[in-house]
């Protein structure tokens, strides 16, 4: 909650690092953390969603294989897709949040080419015209 506090506009890097440390410290939390983040990413408050996306981006590079495996699953990717698609929550999210989600997903297709599900999800978004360029 502290790392995604919407009342603080700028990133709270100390809290984000503490969150990563806690995820690294305990096996259970590294599969639970993505779900917590997905919930925050889908927040109606733009600042909270943007903070959660920054925490997600930081965790993916700092929180080990279990966390990585969880975000590379459709179970998590679908939560990001719901933010983008008008059929789900897409109409409620600002362009700022949606372009940030696309930016992160695209970076994962580049950094983790071996993750087939990330690539499939991104290809589907392009095919549906949800991701332009």
């Amino acid at each position: 909650d502290k790392a995604t506090d919407p009342s603080i506009p700028e990133e709270n890097w100390e809290c984000i690092q503490r969150f990563c440390d806690r995820v690294n410290a305990d096996k259970e939390s590294s599969s639970l953390a993505p779900r917590l983040l997905a919930h925050k990413i889908q927040s109606p408050q733009e600042v909270e969603a943007l903070h959660a996306l920054t925490v997600l981006e930081t965790c993916v590079n700092n929180c080990g294989e279990r966390f990585h495996n969880e975000i590379a699953k459709f179970r998590f990717l679908n939560e990001l897709i719901k933010v983008l698609c008008p059929k789900y929550y897409g109409t409620w999210f600002s362009e700022k949040v949606k372009s940030r989600v696309i930016e992160i997903m695209f970076s994962w297709t580049v950094w983790f080419p071996q993750e087939v599900k990330i690539r499939d999800a991104y290809q589907m978004l392009k095919k549906q015209g949800i991701v332009k360029e």
């Binding site: 459709f74 179970r75 897709i81 549906q128 949800i130």
Partner: peptide
């Protein structure tokens, strides 16, 4: 100890 590896997942959302 064998670390538990959870491969459960769901299908890609149909948009």
């Amino acid at each position: 100890t064998v670390s538990f590896h959870d491969d459960s997942d769901e299908d890609l959302l149909n948009v």
